[in-house]
Design a protein around this nucleic acid. Structure first.
Ligand SMILES: [Mn+2]
Ligand SMILES: [Mn+2]
Ligand SMILES: [Mn+2]
Ligand SMILES: [Mn+2]
Lengths: 226, 226
DNA sequence: TTATTATATTAGGTCATCCTTATAATATCA
DNA sequence: TGATATTATAAGGATGACCTAATATAATAA
């Protein structure tokens, strides 16, 4: 018999998702949690009640959910496991970075703390995952998030891609096909009128990115040297 | 949305367990499956019905259960994943071999085929797990099992430890504490009367092993050179 | 062959995690 | 402020995986 867990991979996914969405807005609307997880709002609501019973989240009706300190710790643990596995899958196993997200999302729920820390040692404690997102510490702290959303840059402004928000494999693939990955230097060449898409110069190519997409790309903005 | 699976980790454990027990006796009594999984016979019986509906096993009432070809393929897939992870956890991460069994038993249910094969490449396609058990092929075939049970050796007979049946972490620890691991040369020095325990010489120490334990240790018997 | 034992099934739960449909309550915008 | 849109809850189900207690049936040993 393995030890009885208080919750399974489903609850872990809720916590992780809430933690991720909290970077965009807090409290996190239950609806957005449901959307992100592809689950009905009724089911999401149910689960959030259970998580509240267990003191992992606090729900303000009609406002949204917050993680408690304990919930954040748990969520960061899941995120740590996912991002460490992402590192191993890309650097160790050579799986393309746009595919590792989902694979790691399975492994993250099946990884003992002993294995997690042994893996961290093995990888020599990387600071970020292949998508540039910081890896939480072993005691559940999330490092500060650097950078500004690419969508905020105006034409003529330059920067270096820092990280891509962990939303979905589709997003990463979309960006990868356009040469957008952590470390690349970019320049916004144009913004279409009426809140239209941005044109981005990467290397010597120019790609057009929708605002929704560009909102998930974080950049280190270059000092304006004119 | 991830793909909808027909069964979860529980059903995989049943298939793996049936495959393992089938080496000792076939058909496999439902009771022994239940015992090995630490589950009531009623529950095991229910699950075996479900597995039969899905054509993974065939149940002969009052006799036991067989794997179908498809069930064996599935079971060998699980075993392949477990043993590959065991290799990585010991050789890659440096986790002691007596601990990797349970960790790998979690990971085996969360590993995509793409990851499995990338891992096999990475490990350079090992033939056996750290316990000496052969790793099934990518298409679900189990290599032939060599060796005879240590418990069958008579006093004076020698051999080399080939593998330890994948039963439990306790068994492995018990053996490890007595210096019994794959590759070691041993000699049976004595068998206590009335089907008693065997005394085994390993290196220059002598350890006493119960018959139950010794039945799970497989050896390559040395030619009797007298 | 009968008594004992092993095995299976029936009945009636629990719990986590999902669903749809319908209704109630709140927020927000005009 | 009142209408509309969001959000929450209530009601009733489903499924997979587990449980105990009681009963039925087949296998086997005396
Ligand atoms: Mn996940
Ligand atoms: Mn990542
Ligand atoms: Mn397992
Ligand atoms: Mn093994």
């Amino acid at each position: 018999m393995v030890q009885k867990r208080f919750f399974g991979s489903s609850a872990e996914m809720y916590l992780k998702t809430i933690a991720e969405l909290a970077h965009e807005r807090e409290p996190v609307p239950v609806t957005s949690v449901a959307d992100r997880l592809g689950i009905s709002t009724v089911s999401a609501s149910e689960m959030i009640h259970r998580l509240e019973d267990r003191k992992f989240v606090k729900h303000r009706p009609y406002k949204g959910v917050y993680l408690t300190a304990e919930g954040r710790r748990k969520a960061n643990g899941v995120i740590r496991r996912q991002r460490l596995w992402e590192c191993f899958l890309t650097n160790g196993l050579g799986i393309p970075w746009e595919h590792v997200h989902d694979f790691a999302c399975q492994l993250e729920h099946a990884t003992d703390p002993v294995v997690t820390e042994a893996l961290a040692d093995y990888l020599e404690h990387p600071a970020t995952c292949p998508h540039g997102n910081p890896i939480p510490t072993a005691d559940g702290e999330m490092p500060a998030l650097e950078g500004v959303p690419l969508v905020n840059l105006m034409p003529g402004e330059k920067g270096v891609i820092l990280r891509i928000h962990p939303v979905s494999e589709e997003l990463v693939k979309h960006l990868d096909e356009r040469g957008i990955s952590p470390g690349r230097e970019i320049e916004v060449t144009e913004i279409a009128p009426f809140n239209g898409p941005q044109s981005i110069e990467v290397g010597d190519e120019i790609h057009v990115l929708g605002r929704e997409v560009a909102a998930h790309v974080m950049v280190q903005q270059a000092a304006d040297t004119r």
